[in-house]
Structures are given as structure tokens and as C-alpha cells.
Design a protein around this nucleic acid. Structure first.
Lengths: 193, 193
DNA sequence: CGAGGATTTTTACTATTTGTAAATATCTTA
DNA sequence: TAAGATATTTACAAATAGTAAAAATCCTCG
């Protein structure tokens, strides 16, 4: 954990240099002294949270991606998921005309994401749902209407959409043919392990 | 920013309750006083970084996903990328037979990811590359061999693969027809903005 | 419903250390 | 080599994080 905190200061310096900024520029932008930036980068001082957040903002970086970019840990070379192995899974009990097939479950990667294939039959029915995830969807075939919050948008084969799944949403197939899409969930909170 | 810090304490409480933990349990595990946990959750005290990291660990949560799960901000409901709008982009100068089309660029989402369509012609040529990203790929059509590190794996339409892009890798099309795939990059560090 | 135990919040206070202005050291460039 | 830019260090004051314990609140059970 000491290493982790020192890694924060090192990461600040890396980003600062990548962006060609001086300590004085960052300090001025973050409204702290240049001495503090130096001490933080050199591991001499642990910044308070407000100061750290100001520094991250001064580096024109988002908090989540700052912490995402800190060194993590061990790895496997790759994971393959075969078409024939895509298990049918349940996502919503009250859905009619929805079929989900799992590509990668939540626990398979160090990134909190899940990949599934979704096929929706014509005349499908389902209320709006909310997920604790950002959702990315790529239309593999067919068309559907996406109802998100108070808005609707029609997607066709080859189109993609990205949205915050905490907003109530539902895809609706108003055509006469099935529609299929690849769905990626980027989870926002730690799953039960 | 004040709101952001208060949001940290609120998030800690949310996670704690979801996991059915008491303040005393978390405090004991984080090796701080129960009073401090209460003050943090109620926005009375801003925890130092070491303490915050200990609390996050006591909640059995990862730092990156903790910050990922904090409310972000004003957002558009969704972002759509149309098939017709997929711009052809360059990824590697020395590649022959590779065509990339951008779906979402890196800067379009609060998550550091990028989505592209990749088509590889038969007889394509390219050396192995490394990216600062995890890569997820879904085979849209055709087949290709994925060479990752010292290993090879053949992927067919409908298959998916997930790997650490820092390992030298290259897809090879040994068939007589083009192959296409959807590629998602999950970036590991903050890009130059 | 009341009592007792569990849990959370608050109080009073101390120790620590963050963050500063300015001095000093180091680096870079002409 | 000298001057300006940049980074580091020093000495110190102010603030507040973090504590132990008291007080308040909540919850469950007989």
C-alpha cells in the first residue's frame, strides 16, 4: 500500500511529462504550491483528497481513468470464447422474445466487463430495466428501436450505441424479423466475489 | 469537487450496506476507529489517502472500480455511431491488407475505451504490435489466426478473444476471403488529450 | 411495549503532517 | 559559462485527521 501511494506520485509525474507540463503550471492550475507538487511526485508528501483531485483535474485527466492507469497485476495471455460455447443465460424474468448468450462472464477478466449476444424476436416485450453498467452495443443484424429514458433512437445493422445503463432502457423490435446485437457491459461497481 | 468528496463517503456507506457490513467490522479491518468511518460516511472528515485505500480494501473492493463507480456528472443519455459514419483510420503504418473503421474514439466516453471495425484481406502482412490496452475482439465474418506472444489460436465467425495488448500480437488471414472483426480497446493509461 | 445489546454518532482533544513562502539546487540552452 | 527555467528543500504554522470514550440511536426479542 505504501507502494501504491508512491505509485500515485510517480503516475502524476508521468502524466505531467507526457503532456509536457511544468510543475509550476500544474501547481498554478491546481491552486497549490509548486513545492507541494514536487513533494508529492517524489513521495515526500501524501496529498489530501481535495488536493489530489485538483492535481488530477490540472492534468486534464479524469479521476476514474487516473486510478485505472495505475499498475495492477498478474495476467494470462488470452482468453477465447467459442461460438459453440455461448451458453444461453437469463437476464430478465419478465422478458418475452429476448435471448441472451454469454461470451465472457463478469469474473473472467481483470476489467469489470461482460460480453453477451442478444437476439430479440419481433413482437418482443419487456419493461425498461436499469443496470449498474455502461452499455456498448453493436448491431449484428436487423433493426431495433432503443428507448432510453425519455428518448428513442432507431438502430440498424452496423450501428453502435453507448449509454449509461442506470438510465431506464429497453430495446424494442418493431420489425418482422429477429434482430441481434453484441452487448458489452462495463460495470460500475464491484461485483460480489 | 466538494460534492465529489462527499460522494466518496456516501459510496463507502452504500457498498458497506450492500455487503451487510457494520461500521465496526470495516473499521477493524481497515485498522481505524469506528468513529472515523462514521465521520467519513457522514462527510464530517476527509480521509487521508492511506486511510481511504485501507477502507476500500476493507470493503473488498478494488481502487479502480471504486472510483469507477462514483457518480460522474451531467451526461448525454447516449451516443450513437452510425455504420455510414465509420471513418477509415490508420492504426499501423507498415500494415498491408488491414482496414480500420472507427466506431467510438477514445475521447467519446468516460471509460477509456475505443471501438473499431477491422477488416483483414487475405495475404495480409503486419509485424506484431503492442498496445497499452486490453483487447476484446468479436469475429464478425471469416476466420483468422491470432498470434499472441508465442502462441497461436484460430478464430472463426462468432468467436471472441480477450487478451492483454501489451503482449506482442498480430492477426493473420491465411484464408482466401476477407475477415472482419469488432475490436474493443480498454486503455490502461490516460491518453494524450 | 420495554429492556438490553448492537450499532452509529458525537465530543473533546492530541499528534501529526499537509501545505506554504522562500531559499537553494539543478537543469537547460544560447 | 552564465542566465533563466525548473525542481527540490527548509522551516514552520495552521488545520484537521484520527482517537477513545461517551452519548445517542436503532433493532430485536421476550
Amino acid at each position: 500500500m505504501e507502494d501504491y501511494i508512491i505509485g500515485i506520485g510517480k503516475r502524476i509525474r508521468e502524466i505531467r511529462k507526457e503532456k509536457g507540463l511544468t510543475i509550476n503550471t500544474v501547481a498554478s492550475s491546481a491552486e497549490v504550491s509548486n513545492g507541494l507538487i514536487s513533494r508529492v511526485e517524489n513521495g515526500r508528501t501524501i496529498p489530501s483528497l481535495p488536493v489530489l483531485l485538483n492535481i488530477i483535474a490540472a492534468l486534464d485527466t479524469e479521476v476514474a481513468s487516473f486510478f485505472n492507469s495505475l499498475p495492477q497485476g498478474g495476467k494470462t495471455a488470452f482468453i477465447v470464447s467459442r461460438k459453440e460455447e455461448h451458453a444461453i443465460i437469463e437476464k430478465e424474468d419478465d422478458a418475452k422474445g429476448f435471448q441472451y448468450k454469454s461470451i465472457f462472464g463478469k469474473s473472467l477478466s481483470s476489467i469489470a466487463f461482460e460480453a453477451v449476444l442478444l437476439e430479440i424476436q419481433p413482437g418482443s416485450e419487456r419493461g425498461k430495466v436499469e443496470t449498474d453498467a455502461y452499455e456498448f452495443k453493436y448491431m449484428l443484424s436487423g433493426s431495433c428501436v432503443y428507448n432510453i429514458g425519455d428518448e428513442e433512437v432507431t438502430l440498424h445493422q452496423g450501428d453502435s450505441i453507448f449509454f449509461d445503463g442506470r438510465i431506464p432502457h429497453v430495446p424494442i423490435n418493431r420489425t418482422t424479423a429477429p434482430t441481434s446485437m453484441l452487448v458489452l457491459y462495463f460495470y460500475l461497481k464491484d461485483a460480489e466475489n
